[in-house]
Nucleic acid binder design. Structure first.
Lengths: 212, 212
DNA sequence: AGCAATTTTGAATGCTCATTCAATTTCAGC
DNA sequence: GCTGAAATTGAATGAGCATTCAAAATTGCT
C-alpha cells in the first residue's frame, strides 16, 4: 500500500483517511471481487475503525459507487490528456488514443479489476451502467471523426463508424486478455496487432508504430 | 423459466431436479451477479428445498463451479460443431468461427452474464481461470492455422499470430459491447465491422459477408 | 397393499455481514 | 494547558448467510 504520511490539520487528516478507505476498497475489490469485499476487510487494510466508512460514505454501496465514479473520471481525464498533447494529424491522434489504452496508468490489474468487477454487476445494478462504459459516446465520437479525417486525407472511403466499432472492440478485447492472463500478456505484441489492423486500412499512415 | 414437465422414474426425477437447480443458478447469477447469488434465491426459483443443493452439490461453491464448467463445455462444443459443418476453404471456416460467436445460442444475456460474472472472480479464485478463457488454446491454434492457409492461398504474408490476436480481441470486445448494451446492440453491424476487417486483409475473400 | 431404500424437506445452527451510536480521542483556538 | 467542537472508535444489533440432519415423503419392488 502506498500510504502517504499522515498530514497535519483537521480537514487534511479527514480527507487523508477518506482516501485511505477508497484506496483500500480498490485493493480489496481487485483481490477478492465485489462478492468478497466486506467492510471488515476494507477497514483492516485502511487501518481505520469500522464506523468510519459510514461516516465518510453513507453506506457500503455509496462507497463502491464512489470508487467506480473515481475510476471512470480518471480514465476519461487520461485519454483526453493524451489526445491534447498529441500532434494534430489524425493518424497521430488515433495513435495517441490507442496508446492511452495501453498506458500502465490504465492497463494495470487494479484498474481493470475494478472495471470488470463492476461490469459483472451491471445487470444487478443498472445504476452502474453509466459509469462502466469506458468507451463512451465522447470517445466514440472523437474516434469516428478521426477516421473521417483520415479518409479525407487519404481519399479512402472506409466506413468510419464500423472502423470505430472494430477498433474499440479490439482494444476492449485486449484489455480482457490482459486481465485474464496478466502474466503472459505481451504489450508490444498487442500493440502490434492493433497497428497491423490500422496499417492495412491506411497503408503507410501507421508505419513503424507497434512493430513487433 | 423453461421448466420441462416432471419426468417419471426415480433417477430421472433426481436429474431433473438437479438440472432445475443449475438452470435457476444461471438465471440468478445473470440477474443478481455472483455477489447476489444465494442458496435461498436459487432454491426459490428452482422450487426445491434448501437442503437439496447440498445433496446434489457438495457446496454452493461446487455448484457455481459446475455451472461454469457446463457453460465452458457448451461453448466449446458449439464452435467445434459449427466448424465441422462448414465448408473446407479457410475463408469459409474462419467465417464459421466468427458467426459461431454471434449465434444466439452463445451471444445471449444468460450466457454472457455467466462469463462476465465468473471472470470478475478470477483474481479471487484462480481455479476459475481454466474455465473462463473462452478463446482458449485450441480455438486460437485453429484460427492461426486458418490464417496461414489463407496466406498460402492468396500469396499474402500477414502475421497469422497477430491477426488471430486481433480477431479474437475484436470478437471479445463485441461481446462486451453486447453485454453492456444489449438493447442497442446491432448484430449485423457488429458482423459488418468484423468482416470489414477481414475483407481489407484478404480482398475479395469475405465479399458480401456481413455487409450492412 | 406393505415395506424398505431412496430422495427430499425445512427448521435449526453458528457464522459473517453492514450499520449504528454512545463513548472516547483529537485538535484548533484561546 | 484548558475547553468545546469535530472526528473517530468499536462493541452491540439484528438481518441474512451456507450448511446440516433428523424427520417426512416418495418410489419401486414383492
Amino acid at each position: 500500500m502506498n500510504s502517504e504520511p499522515k498530514p497535519k490539520g483537521r480537514e487534511a487528516v479527514k480527507l487523508w483517511r477518506r482516501k485511505k478507505i477508497i484506496d483500500a476498497t480498490i485493493e480489496i475489490i481487485t483481490r477478492h471481487g465485489i462478492a468478497g469485499t466486506t467492510i471488515a476487510r476494507v477497514v483492516e487494510l485502511a487501518d481505520v475503525s469500522m464506523g468510519l466508512v459510514n461516516v465518510h460514505f453513507k453506506s457500503k454501496d455509496a462507497l463502491l459507487t464512489e470508487v467506480l465514479r473515481q475510476m471512470a473520471d480518471e480514465y476519461k481525464l487520461h485519454w483526453r490528456h493524451k489526445l491534447e498533447v498529441a500532434a494534430l494529424e489524425p493518424a497521430s491522434r488515433l495513435q495517441a488514443l490507442v496508446l492511452a489504452d495501453f498506458d500502465p496508468e490504465v492497463l494495470n490489474l487494479k484498474t481493470l479489476g475494478i472495471w470488470f468487477a463492476f461490469r459483472a454487476q451491471v445487470r444487478a445494478r443498472p445504476g452502474y451502467l453509466d459509469l462502466v462504459g469506458t468507451r463512451e459516446s465522447e470517445q466514440i465520437q472523437t474516434t469516428v471523426e478521426l477516421f473521417r479525417k483520415l479518409n479525407r486525407e487519404t481519399g479512402l472511403e472506409h466506413d468510419a463508424v464500423l472502423l470505430t466499432r472494430a477498433l474499440s472492440a479490439m482494444l476492449e478485447g485486449l484489455w480482457t486478455e490482459y486481465y485474464l492472463y496478466p502474466g503472459e500478456f505481451d504489450r508490444d505484441g498487442a500493440l502490434a496487432s492493433v497497428f497491423l489492423f490500422l496499417n492495412v486500412l491506411y497503408p503507410g499512415r501507421f508505419q513503424g508504430v507497434g512493430v513487433k
